[in-house]
Design a protein around this nucleic acid. Structure first.
Lengths: 193, 193
DNA sequence: TTCGTTCCATGACAGCTGTCATAATATGAC
DNA sequence: GTCATATTATGACAGCTGTCATGGAACGAA
């Protein structure tokens, strides 16, 4: 979070509020207040209105999730697919334990909430793709066949997103720890040596 | 959908609109119009306001998803965990192919969108539990150990919900078919004979 | 009938939404 | 200095939100 100009702060704040309240429930005035930015700057930096701001927030979230994958890999000695997935899951259980279950995934929120605008839906698809790519690349580096790697990455993201959903509803990390435990052996089995 | 009185029609319409637009974006006037119900009845049948209506819609969705499990089992000759999961997934790929990707899971929408009211979040948790229970029961009937059955059911619901999310964003059944294919052998492996 | 209850109709309320027009101010190039 | 550009300020706009108060029908029981 560099937090340089007001523009970047607004995109970041939008992502924060969207992942908590959803797209529709997040007002532009809320974003401005959360970013401590001047209200007049909104129309200036985002001539495309709320739609543009939301799309950039979703883009940012996808980029952020992708970057996190490389950080997980750097923190893993003897990385395996199951251990990477466990790290992805642990990041969420830690976050839930630290700040509560009010904040989820902004991309999920954008997908579920803004079915109206096609560009936001496309931004969500791009975010999922941006997230999946480094995962698949990492799996290949661990010895997973290229064709299997994309499927495995899709499975990992799907299970994680669904478990985040259930964990938020139940206000418990149970679903997250469960999918990590059950999926670990399967994922490690994809490695050919 | 029996569609008896206006009250039931409103709950059903609320679920339909929520799973398409999200909770906040669904207005009570929209629900009334969709249900072709008198507007004056809203305050009469739902003195708890929008919150009550949303909660009942989420309850209904959980009940509906649970009942579908038994229907899947009835349609399966030689049921296995993987085949049950495949049937759950196919129900969604069929639905997406038939009516498009604008309608998702109402429980997911309620979880992501309505972080404000605690009762709606509790209703979503109850819906997930109501959905998971018949799955776990069915798995036990197939020979999955009782302790493993709940974990497996959680994994199935998580992967399905996440794949629904991705499929909606990508407007493609890819994620759904992928998780069904990858998870099938793992799920069948839970059976002890 | 007369009453009481259930259901529906209508309109108004304050509050919020995103958007935009207008203008003031800062910033920096020359 | 002068001027153009980038940024911010302010206020208003129509439209929608959920809620509620008031009143009117329908309808069965007594």
């Amino acid at each position: 979070m560099t937090e340089r100009g007001p523009r970047e702060r607004m995109v970041f704040s939008a992502a924060q509020l969207i992942r908590r309240d959803g797209v529709t429930a997040t007002g532009l005035r809320d974003v401005v207040a959360h970013a401590d930015a001047p209200r007049g700057s909104l129309a200036h930096y985002f001539p495309g209105g709320k739609e543009q701001l939301v799309n950039e927030a979703v883009d940012w979230a996808g980029w952020y999730a992708a970057n996190r994958i490389d950080r997980f890999l750097a923190g893993l000695a003897r990385a395996t697919p199951g251990r990477l997935f466990a790290a992805m899951v642990r990041q969420w259980t830690d976050e839930f334990a630290a700040i509560g279950y009010d904040q989820g995934c902004p991309v999920a929120a954008a997908t579920v909430d803004a079915s109206v605008t096609a560009s936001t839906r496309a931004a969500a698809a791009a975010a999922f793709a941006a997230w999946r790519a480094p995962i698949a690349r990492a799996l290949v580096g661990m010895g997973v066949p290229a064709r299997k790697a994309t499927s495995a990455a899709t499975l990992m993201v799907s299970a994680l997103e669904g478990a985040i959903l259930i964990a938020r509803a139940e206000r418990s990390p149970r679903a997250l720890t469960t999918v990590a435990r059950e999926l670990g052996p399967l994922l490690d089995g994809y490695v050919i040596r």
